[in-house]
Amino acid sequence: MSSTSSGVPAGARDRDSEGRARNARPRDGLGRPLPYGADGVPRQPEGVVRTPDQTVAEAQALLDEGKPFHAHEVFEDAWKSGPEAERALWRGLAQLAVGLTHAARGNVAGGARLLRRGADAVEEWAAGSGERHPYGMDLAGLAGWAGELADAVERGTAVDAAARAPRLRAAR
């Protein structure tokens, strides 16, 4: 079997020593795989423990740069490392970022579905916790943004991820 320039056999998937998939391929700003050896967007390191405020700030910066796939990875770290009581919040925010990713990639059905799923998740978390503005985030505003974007995507509107990035924190 021939190998690529990265040393990964052609046609093989990147795996760690335990057989779990490890995607070493470079990716673009929307997380799409690029050919081995291509210049991609640096990946977010996995498993980083951040404070909630650091998570929100880092995710917002990535969203503003048109990198919702990478923002999703930041939210995923918070979802996996944060307190149990907040996991549904961070998972919902990750779904919003993935929904924006799919919408910007032109995946109408997947983008709209994930935007609505994420909106439902953050609204449900807010209702259950009684918190509408955790860490300064405007959950009702995010849910409204997601619903409007899902409707626009279903009408055939092309989505520029940076131009349509949500504001995570409520206006002050």
Rank of each mutant, 00 (worst) to 15 (best):
H70V: 03
A71W: 00
L96G: 09
R113H: 13
V108P: 11
E73M: 02
F75L: 10
F69T: 05
L89D: 06
R113D: 14
E65L: 14
G106L: 04
H102L: 14
A78P: 07
R113C: 02
G111S: 04
G110F: 00
G118I: 00
F69R: 06
G110D: 00
A78Y: 00
A109T: 15
L114T: 03
A71Y: 00
Q95P: 13
P83S: 11
V74A: 01
G66C: 04
L63R: 04
K80C: 12
A71H: 01
H70P: 10
N107M: 10
K80Y: 08
K80L: 13
E76I: 10
E65A: 15
V108R: 12
A97Q: 05
P83M: 02
G66K: 11
V108I: 14
E76D: 15
E58G: 14
L93N: 06
L89S: 06
L93R: 11
A109E: 15
F69L: 07
R91M: 06
R105P: 07
E65F: 05
E84Y: 11
V74D: 07
P83W: 01
E84H: 13
A78H: 04
A97E: 09
D120M: 00
L89H: 05
A59I: 09
L100F: 03
E76R: 09
R117I: 08
E73V: 01
A59V: 05
N107W: 00
L100H: 07
W79F: 13
D120E: 15
Q60G: 09
A88D: 08
E65S: 15
E58N: 15
G92T: 09
E76S: 08
A85N: 11
N107Y: 13
R113L: 10
H70E: 11
R87A: 13
R105I: 02
A59E: 05
Q60L: 06
G92D: 03
L89R: 10
S81L: 14
Q60K: 11
L63V: 08
A78D: 07
L100P: 09
D64V: 10
K67F: 01
H72Q: 14
A109I: 11
L114K: 06
L100C: 08
A85H: 15
R91A: 09
W90D: 02
A104V: 04
R105V: 10
A94F: 04
G111H: 02
P68M: 06
W90M: 09
L114F: 10
F69I: 01
H72V: 01
H102V: 07
A97V: 03
F69E: 12
E58C: 09
A104E: 07
R91F: 00
A85T: 13
H102D: 11
A78R: 06
D77N: 03
K67I: 01
G92Q: 08
G99A: 10
L114V: 04
R117L: 11
P68N: 04
L100Q: 13
E76W: 05
L89E: 05
G106C: 06
A103R: 09
E58K: 12
F75Q: 08
V74Q: 03
V108Y: 06
S81D: 11
A85L: 08
R87Y: 10
A88F: 02
R117D: 12
F69A: 15
A78N: 07
Q95C: 00
A94P: 10
D64P: 12
G111F: 01
L114P: 08
D77Q: 03
